[in-house]
């Protein structure tokens, strides 16, 4: 089975409160996994654990072949996280924000115009300070930053929030592209309708536990017929994940826009 991430009995604490209370989850390479659940279910904490930002207090975790607690410094550059906040600098222009992220990811700044164009930023908006953008534009800019970083694992928390219909479609198209290129997308959302068309698989969370997150043994994207958890399966070519029969290998990202490859 080709897995980008695997959690078993994962427990994570915020202070003394268990925000993850024994979560089990498999994330296949090249799939769009939607995580649903009520407020406080632990969706955001799950994403932060997968990003290596929230250490586990017990349980097992492997993300892109790395232990997110022990190898957090190695894992984080391979992950793109869009949280509730956008992580932007208001005084920098749209282009400067993306350029900073690209340079901080050791990527060629040539990816910057392509990322901005892919997220629908024309020439005029590229010179606008991020602080002057609307909520939806800021969300798109944050997504452009993730795209410019070129991660292998996309972790998106309510990415559709604030986007109009046109840009929701644009985002869905982008996520299908990155999944087709072998990247995995884990998307936490309340918006069932918006994410239903996008999801390869849907899992639910409640009380810090993923209710249906583990794949049956031997089930991989190439062999499955039906989605696990009730989500629709996307048609289209299946890109092989970075590593078969085990966790993927981490390494410097060589991705162009919407492309990501793993290099050992």
């Amino acid at each position: 089975m080709v897995l980008s991430a695997r959690l078993r009995s994962a427990v994570a604490l915020a202070g003394r409160y268990p925000v993850l209370a024994g979560a089990d989850l498999d994330v296949r390479a090249g799939e769009v996994l939607v995580v649903r659940g009520p407020n406080g279910a632990g969706k955001t904490s799950l994403l932060r654990v997968l990003a290596g930002l929230l250490p586990l207090s017990s349980g097992e975790a492997e993300v892109l072949g790395l232990d997110p607690s022990a190898d957090a410094r190695s894992l984080r550059p391979l992950v793109g996280l869009l949280g509730h906040k956008n992580g932007l600098y208001d005084e920098l222009t749209t282009e400067q924000n993306v350029r900073f992220v690209a340079r901080a990811a050791r990527r060629d700044v040539d990816v910057v115009p392509a990322a901005l164009e892919r997220l629908g930023f024309g020439q005029r908006l590229r010179q606008a300070p991020a602080g002057k953008l609307s909520a939806g534009q800021r969300r798109r800019l944050a997504l452009a930053c993730v795209l410019a970083k070129g991660p292998l694992l996309w972790l998106l928390d309510e990415p559709h929030a604030g986007l109009d219909a046109e840009h929701r479609e644009l985002l869905d198209g982008l996520l299908r592209e990155v999944a087709a290129d072998g990247c995995s997308v884990v998307l936490a959302s309340h918006e069932h309708r918006a994410t239903a068309v996008l999801a390869d698989r849907v899992v639910n969370m409640a009380g810090g536990v993923v209710l249906d997150g583990v794949l049956p043994l031997g089930l991989s994207r190439g062999s499955q017929g039906d989605p696990v958890g009730g989500g629709p399966v996307q048609a289209g070519p299946v890109q092989a994940g970075p590593v078969e029969a085990g966790p993927v290998e981490a390494g410097p990202v060589q991705a162009g826009v919407g492309e990501a490859q793993s290099v050992a």
Binding site: A51, L53, R76, P77, V79, G80, L81, G83, H84, K85, N86, G87, L88, Y89, D90, V101, A104, A105, R106, C145, K149
Partner: peptide, 12 residues
């Protein structure tokens, strides 16, 4: 202000 520290931590 906008959780940019997380982006720094996730960078190289």
């Amino acid at each position: 202000a906008d959780a940019a520290m997380d982006a720094l931590r996730l960078s190289r």
